[in-house]
Amino acid sequence: MRYTFLLLIVAFACNSVSEKFSTHGSEITSDNALSIKDFLQKVNEEESTFKVRGTIEEVCQMKGCWMTLRNEMGENVRVTFKDYGFFVPKDISGREVIIEGTASREVLEEDVARHYAEDGGKEYDESMRNSISFVAHGVLVKEG
């Protein structure tokens, strides 16, 4: 009877679906992360702490020192990393990510927006100045 119970536990553990993530920066967990849509409804000009789950749209191709998140609302969500203390791989566009840190809405200086456009291989557009700035202290990138 004990062996049957043990075999059932092992079989269940082997069949369970588990998300695998690589960690960058501080260790964080995946639980209680907001969707991009919910995050965009809550973020404002005042800096607040968030945990968000989304899809990476673009990564800085120079060093991996920033990334943007895809969203249907059309707002630019630019993620940088606390104290420039870590980077992410440059080849992770399209992957799911969970980020934790502080965020606020802001209008970027034109030269900063131009710099980001250049690093992303895009032509500058005035609308790039309107942004949501997210400074992550921890990032989980879904593997595979």
Rank of each mutant, 00 (worst) to 15 (best):
G64A: 03
D91E: 09
K142D: 02
E109T: 12
N44S: 15
K42N: 10
S104F: 13
V97E: 02
E45H: 11
S127D: 12
E47L: 09
E72C: 05
I132Q: 03
E27A: 10
S16D: 04
N32M: 05
I56S: 04
E58A: 04
F12E: 00
K20T: 13
M73F: 10
R114P: 09
E46V: 15
V135H: 00
D83E: 14
A113Q: 08
F39S: 05
S18T: 14
M73C: 01
E96C: 03
T49L: 01
G54A: 07
H115T: 06
C14Q: 10
V139W: 02
E123N: 10
P89C: 06
V88G: 00
K122N: 07
K42W: 09
H115Q: 09
L69V: 08
E46S: 14
N130R: 06
E110S: 06
S18P: 02
K42E: 15
R114A: 14
G120M: 09
E106V: 06
D38M: 05
F21Q: 03
S26F: 11
I132D: 01
L69C: 01
G138F: 02
V52M: 04
G144M: 06
H137E: 02
S26P: 02
L69H: 04
S127E: 13
I132Y: 01
G101I: 10
K51Q: 13
H137T: 03
A136E: 03
E58Y: 04
T80N: 12
W66M: 02
T68F: 05
E143V: 04
F87H: 07
R53K: 14
V112C: 07
K63S: 08
V135Y: 01
R2S: 11
V141H: 01
A117D: 14
K37F: 15
N71D: 08
V77R: 07
I98C: 05
V97K: 05
F5K: 12
I99C: 04
V52S: 07
K82Q: 09
E58Q: 08
A11M: 13
E72G: 11
F86S: 01
E96D: 12
S131R: 02
I36C: 10
G144D: 07
E57P: 00
T102L: 08
D119Q: 10
V97I: 14
D111Q: 06
K20V: 11
S16W: 08
F5G: 07
V135I: 14
V107C: 09
I56F: 00
L108D: 03
T4C: 09
A103E: 10
E106K: 15
G25Y: 08
P89T: 03
N130D: 15
S18A: 11
K122I: 07
H115N: 11
R2N: 13
L7S: 15
D125N: 12
A113G: 12
E27P: 08
D111P: 02
I99V: 15
T55Y: 01
E143W: 00
L6A: 14
P89I: 04
Y84P: 02
M67R: 02
E45A: 12
E19D: 11
V107D: 10
F50E: 07
W66R: 11
V97N: 09
E72R: 14
E110A: 09
E123D: 13
R129K: 14
V10C: 11
V17R: 11
L34F: 11
E46I: 15
T49Q: 08
I9T: 14
S104E: 14
